[in-house]
Amino acid sequence: MASDFYTHFPLRANRVHEACGPSALGFAFAVAGQRRGTALWVTEAWHAGQINPAGFAPYFDPRDLLIARGKDQTDVLATAEEALRSGAIALTVITVTKPIGLTEGRRLQLAAEAGKSMGLCLVPDGKGSNAAETRWHCEPIFDAADSTLQRWEIIKNKSGTLATWIVRWNVEARRITVVSEAG
């Protein structure tokens, strides 16, 4: 049921969500494109420079993207909290390399609520925090006809059920559309 997807996908505002899997970057840019506003990409300095503006330009205008490079994960989380709390940023994407604890996750959540902003943590597989509102696992799948097909799966949801969808990127409309719901 496609409508079910749209109750989940424009992710719940004022919360921090998580994404993992090989297509987590694509998921982050799809979310950023929906949020409309400035996005802040917070990473550790050594980890930065992996995203390619020419590549994500169809999803999200690189002019609206700011990058913050922190020294370590503490810096990254502090920067993210500051950005979420300020309310000047529509989406804060946080690249996490080490698992974050419940305290840190909860602080981010409170900051997002205070600033009426949205956060998205890109976590390594299975390293998420329990404080996250939802966690999505995203991976590309092969299809003979379509080269944008992806499987998005909610693997944690605080206020709802888990589900899986096959989605594709509609190039003309510049948005994510659901192809089918997979069990």
Binding site: A45, P53, P62, L66, A68, R69, G70, K71, D75, T79
Partner: peptide, 10 residues
């Protein structure tokens, strides 16, 4: 906090 040069844009 992280240095003004570390906030960047493309």
């Amino acid at each position: 906090r992280i240095g003004l040069d570390n906030v960047q844009r493309f």
